[in-house]
């Protein structure tokens, strides 16, 4: 929702008003995830030391191998951190599967009509054409689409990573199906590559693209300014404000019951939310 039509004073007010978008756990998970990706990508690329498969200069391999004291420790670190990372995110998902992940999935991953429109309009935007982005929830369609890549990618990466880490056990359990390990390597590589391709946009959007600057800082503070929310995640913004007001109304009602205030009508609430 464009903010151009809002009065300047209102825009300033919104800019100053902070809405909580991320909880601390979310923030920590994000940065743990970010660090893990950086670490695993850096070590993973260094592990691929063979001239046929290496995608970064050989010096990178040499540097990291020396840093970790050889190829074997480098691989051990990659495997260990990979398993730790896999454990943390799997644990997060499992612990909150019904409480958070299901609603999260329902709201943040189901594409609606607006999302499809968003893709169309965003394409126009990138192409430099006139566009009108539809209202977006707390995760826009691009973020939703990326979440698919990320979730599928992560599942693939974890599965193939485990196959490689536990290759002797896999061999024994499967009676020598070595093709599992042989395929795990390029699939692991490809899955990482696709997620990284998405990450390029994610990082650009999050860290460089000015419109999303508020989102970038939110990954530290947990808060976005209302103006950003108003313009980029209008649906969410509306719901957030409504919830805020409902809470306030609830508090007011309590006050009234205790005889310290007056009731607000539903119409008033709607008005406030807009």
């Amino acid at each position: 929702m464009s903010t151009v039509n809002l009065p300047l004073a209102e825009r300033k007010r919104l800019k100053k008003k902070k809405l909580t978008k991320h909880h601390l756990a979310n923030i920590l998970t994000h940065w743990f995830n970010a660090f893990s990706w950086g670490f695993l990508l850096a070590t993973g690329l260094a592990i691929l030391g063979n001239r046929v498969y290496q995608t970064v200069p050989a010096q990178w391999s040499a540097f990291l191998r020396n840093l970790f004291g050889g190829l074997a420790p480098l691989i051990k670190w990659h495997e260990s951190w990979g398993m730790f990372w896999a454990f943390v995110i799997t644990f997060n998902v499992l612990v909150g599967f019904r409480k958070y992940f299901m609603p999260f999935g329902a709201r943040r991953m189901m594409l609606d009509q607006d999302d499809l429109e968003w893709f169309k309009q965003y394409g126009r935007k990138l192409a430099g054409l006139s566009y009108q982005l539809p209202e977006q929830d707390d995760y826009n369609a691009g973020q939703k689409a990326f979440s698919y890549v990320v979730i599928l990618g992560i599942i693939t990466i974890i599965a193939t990573g485990l196959i490689m880490t536990f290759s002797p056990q896999v061999m024994r359990a499967t009676g020598g199906m070595q093709w599992l390990i042989q395929w795990a390597m390029p699939i692991h590589f490809t899955a990482v590559g696709l997620v990284v391709a998405g990450l390029v946009v994610h990082i650009y959007m999050g860290a460089i693209f000015p419109e999303e600057r508020s989102a970038f800082f939110s990954m530290f503070s947990g808060k976005v300014d209302a103006l950003y929310a108003y313009s980029h995640h209008h649906k969410w913004y509306k719901r957030y404000i409504r919830a805020e007001q409902e809470w306030e109304a609830g508090e007011l009602a309590k006050d009234i019951e205790m005889g310290v205030g007056t009731a607000v009508s539903d119409a008033e609430l709607d008005e406030l939310a807009d």
Binding site: G70, L71, I75, M164, S167, P168, Q178, I181, Q182, M185
Partner: peptide
């Protein structure tokens, strides 16, 4: 390097 080999074959 047996320590580094992941046994892909």
């Amino acid at each position: 390097d047996e320590e580094a080999c992941i046994g892909c074959g």
